[in-house]
């Protein structure tokens, strides 16, 4: 595998050097991640307040989530972060085939997570674990609050993951067609930052939603 050199490719406007573009793209991604942390942080702090108020109800409800789906998905997502990291570092070395394999595996693992999540949602709906449903099986009423957080947080996480899979496929296309000098542009590094954030958010959600009530 030879190092890709595309002498015609130039940095995006308004950058005059690849190094400056790489710094800016990475820095911009970090700022975006800070903004994402506030978004998830608001939900997590609200979860904390409610769990403090209704700890017994949260334990009752937390025991009803499906720990098998949750644990297998955690393993899948952690593995996808590893393949993402391989792709990002291979890009620096200009290893095109490794990058493409890494990105494909990342997208496939992300997709597998969504499929499993879909089966888990189907099971939840089958068991009427939907807040507001007349057949909601648990008591007291505050157990519905736990499942409100469950649906809101995993739903928002799944939306982020879907966007992430789309971005991975798009960048794979960019690498495949050499639309930019991806060895120097820092594109892969930025993509990896976003992917790892999705992973980190899940690492926080997993104990909050699946391990609560299983002490």
């Amino acid at each position: 595998m030879s190092r890709v050199t595309s002498p015609g490719a130039e940095p995006n406007e308004p950058f005059l050097s690849w190094q400056r573009q790489r710094e800016a793209a990475t820095f911009g991604l970090w700022i975006f991640l800070a903004s994402e942390v506030v978004f998830f942080g608001a939900l997590i702090v609200a979860y904390g307040a409610h769990r403090f108020l209704y700890s017994a109800a949260f334990e009752t409800a937390g025991a009803e989530t499906n720990i098998w789906y949750g644990s297998i998905n955690t393993a899948i997502l952690l593995t996808s972060s590893a393949t993402m990291a391989v792709a990002a570092w291979a890009a620096k070395a200009g290893l095109k085939r490794t990058v493409l394999i890494g990105l494909s595996l990342t997208a496939a693992l992300g997709f597998a997570f969504l499929v499993l999540k879909g089966f888990e949602y189907r099971e939840d709906i089958h068991e009427h674990l939907v807040p507001g449903s007349p057949a909601f099986p648990l008591a007291p009423a505050q157990t519905q609050i736990f499942f409100s957080y469950y649906w809101a947080m995993t739903g928002v996480h799944a939306i982020h993951l879907t966007i992430g899979i789309g971005a991975v496929l798009w960048i794979a296309f960019v690498v495949l067609t050499d639309r930019t000098d991806w060895t120097r542009s820092g594109t892969l590094h930025g993509l990896a930052l976003y992917w790892h954030l999705i992973d980190v958010v899940w690492i926080v959600l997993y104990p909050l939603l699946y391990l609560a009530g299983r002490g």
Binding site: A57, S133, W151, A152
Partner: peptide, 18 residues
């Protein structure tokens, strides 16, 4: 929006929401 569209109860006092 989640409460209006999907019936989640985070802000609904009747279910312990705040």
């Amino acid at each position: 929006v989640a409460e209006r569209l999907f019936g989640l109860g985070l802000l609904d006092p009747a279910r312990g929401g705040d």
